[in-house]
Design a protein around this nucleic acid. Structure first.
Lengths: 212, 212
DNA sequence: AACATATTGTGAATAAATTCACAGCGTTAA
DNA sequence: TTAACGCTGTGAATTTATTCACAATATGTT
């Protein structure tokens, strides 16, 4: 059962789509339908579903509920998985807004900021700690993933602290390349690079389109 | 000169790294160094640089300034490229903070929100328009890319409007899969999926590590 | 002037990801 | 009962991406 990053990304997306498909009253789905909703191909969808060991029926396609459960069993932790958020500026607050309560198995369990004004305030049910508490709180709460939402200048220091505290996965929103040990999983969500990328492809579309 | 998405992503990252390398006083760089800074391999770096038609010297590696210029020539528009931002909640404001002024060829030229309280306020030098003005302002300002930073529920409607207004590239932060014409480039930056992905790989590292 | 060195550029090899294409299978219809 | 249908599961083919490996090269050294 070899799974690449892309596999996992697609499975996460499928689950999202399947849940909303179920919420509009459907009970089953075909690879063709799911592919079209996920901008993929039917063969890709079947391969991905095969990779988690689930089987559909040649007549009814995939049972929505069972498929969602199978994907969740594959993707999720059995227990609640706790997340730390560092940085309570606009970005950090928007992450809480978008995220909190959306996934049953994931929970923002601690929030850190270096601004003394924010320390000890409670945001959306999370108490805000000073950055110095990272080393103490993260092991105590048994948190293994963290979101970095601080300005570029502070990101590497925060990352180092997080790693020292035992974090294994980092979602980094700061526009810097972090230097970290190889056994830490890092997902970079650099906003500037993202805009630049879109700009490149938008331009490409525009100029290609006009060259006919 | 065939370039894939991954190529472009790496080139954007290289540029970022090269610029900061230059800022600490260096004048040239070897594929080996750049690879290590970008978590890549020397061969990959050379291939990527080859793909934009730049050549280094077997003795001095790559001239920093010239390489940065070559990459920029390849990636950037000649003229200023304008960006629209829709949604001025916490996320939208953090995008302005992180982004504005960072890239010389890209500029947030218009900001939209549906909250009447925000209309006509000026944020970081950008006047905020009502969403209804999208169809008017975007063609007038000749904007071809947009960032969606609204809640999930409003994202599809906003996207439809943007496409109608002539947008060619969308950076979507809302946690929904947008349904759009095939000639529009969409980059999804779904925060929930991102956290889920990190959670999966962090768990995998944790459990693999403990199985020795 | 000849040699040693370290790096680039790239054809060829390899690995990874995707797509093709079709056998096999329940179900429905006659 | 039998035939026809449309879908899944998957081996094989194809395409795409990455890495290998080495000739070519410019410089410093003796």
């Amino acid at each position: 059962m070899k799974t690449s990053e892309k596999n996992i990304e697609r499975l996460l997306l499928y689950r999202r789509i399947l849940i909303s498909f179920k919420n509009i009253g459907k009970t089953n789905i075909y690879s063709k339908q799911l592919a079209s909703l996920a901008d993929s191909t039917p063969a890709q969808v079947r391969r991905d579903i095969m990779s988690i060991g689930y089987s559909g029926s040649p007549v009814h396609g995939y049972d929505l509920e069972k498929l969602i459960d199978s994907i969740s069993e594959f993707l999720d932790s059995n227990n609640l998985q706790k997340v730390a958020l560092v940085g309570l500026g606009h970005l950090g607050r928007s992450i809480i807004d978008y995220f909190q309560g959306r996934r049953p198995k994931l929970m923002i369990a601690a929030v850190f900021d270096r601004d003394p004004d924010k320390i000890d305030r409670v945001m959306h049910g999370c108490r805000c700690y000073s950055n110095e508490k990272i080393l103490k709180v993260i092991p105590k709460e048994n948190i293994n993933i963290a979101i970095i939402a601080v300005p570029a200048s502070g990101a590497q220091d925060v990352a180092d602290l997080l790693v020292q505290a035992g974090i294994k996965g980092i979602l980094n929103y700061a526009p810097v390349k972090l230097t970290l040990p190889p056994d830490i999983y890092v997902e970079n969500r650099d906003m500037i690079l993202a805009v630049e990328k879109v700009a490149y492809f938008a331009r490409k579309i525009t100029t290609e389109g006009s060259s006919t």
